[in-house]
Design a protein around this nucleic acid. Structure first.
Lengths: 165, 165
DNA sequence: CTGATGTACTTGAACTCTCAAGTTCATTAC
DNA sequence: GTAATGAACTTGAGAGTTCAAGTACATCAG
């Protein structure tokens, strides 16, 4: 891999540049939109909400911190702070991991589950109206493929993510 | 627009859910990746870099604050803080707008321009290898369409962006 | 020209994220 | 066992973001 940029740079073509610009704007706008929606309706940023969703889908509504961090694609440090904040709000509680004394499980509380139940409809509606309603079924499929390809490339594999150094 | 979510929620289908999950992961990973790359190589977060790029492409390397905020899809407040930081680093300088005494222009300094010149190759390379190299030309075109559609939907028009209330 | 309203931008505080330690327990090698 | 290394998580400080004011100028109605 010629990663060293001492070589002549491979500038973006006009089309690529337009795509890149559109990508930056769309992702920025969408993230902002959902952040506001959730801050307003659930009192937390989007990423925190996503953590609760992950927990709600996990076996006993609990997940090891590291696993949750990996699923959500955030650092352990960020997760620690996030869970601390969510604990303060009462949506999550920590419990010691029985099998590994270093480990912690993040557990979705009943209050957290209830909160999700009440805000989920509004949130899917927001996602739908901002994203899926604006795309054809083919585009949705294309977007899935594209994102999967990109995610795969940035994933732990040929990786340098913080927790894999 | 039936925006009220009192109606039966239109949950995401399995396919949509997979796409949404892939989207969240890909955008998160990519943003993190570029943030780290630029923090390392240019000493600033991605969004700050994007601001400098916008300035570098503007007529006299200067832009009204509001226009810059709109182009970059961020709030004026965020831009104020960002420009303050960039000013401290010497990449940007503020100047009063001649025609409107309330207005400010953000101006890319020579040092800022030089810094861009030196780091741009590494940055495009990062964008290329993380995104464009992983997609077929068709997928790049598709992504462009998709993002344009999404951005258009979230844009000032039927809007509720902070600066348009 | 005066008051009301709106626009352009800034500010401070509360919150979140990152990065570099630090702590505690697990594992592995003697 | 014990020392060295590694893994799981936390912490604190600095940087960045948001939200709600606040200041200053512009514009519009009368």
């Amino acid at each position: 891999m010629t990663s060293n940029s001492a070589d002549r740079p491979r500038w973006l073509s006009d089309g690529e540049q337009r795509t890149w610009q559109a990508y930056l704007q769309a992702t920025m706008l969408l993230e902002d939109h959902l952040d506001r929606q959730l801050q307003r309706d659930a009192g937390m940023p989007h990423i925190y909400y996503a953590l609760l969703v992950q927990l709600s889908q996990a076996p006993r509504r609990r997940l090891r911190m590291t696993v949750l961090a990996q699923n959500a694609k955030i650092t352990r440090s960020r997760l620690s702070h996030a869970v601390a904040a969510l604990e303060k709000k009462g949506w999550v509680r920590r419990e010691d991991c029985p099998s590994d004394k270093r480990g912690q499980n993040a557990v979705l509380t009943d209050a957290g589950y209830e909160m999700l139940r009440q805000t989920a409809p509004g949130h899917v509606e927001a996602v739908r109206s901002a994203l899926f309603d604006r795309l054809t079924p083919e585009q949705v499929a294309q977007l899935g493929e594209i994102c999967a390809a990109v995610a795969e490339g940035l994933q732990p594999e040929g990786a340098d993510l913080p927790w894999l150094r």
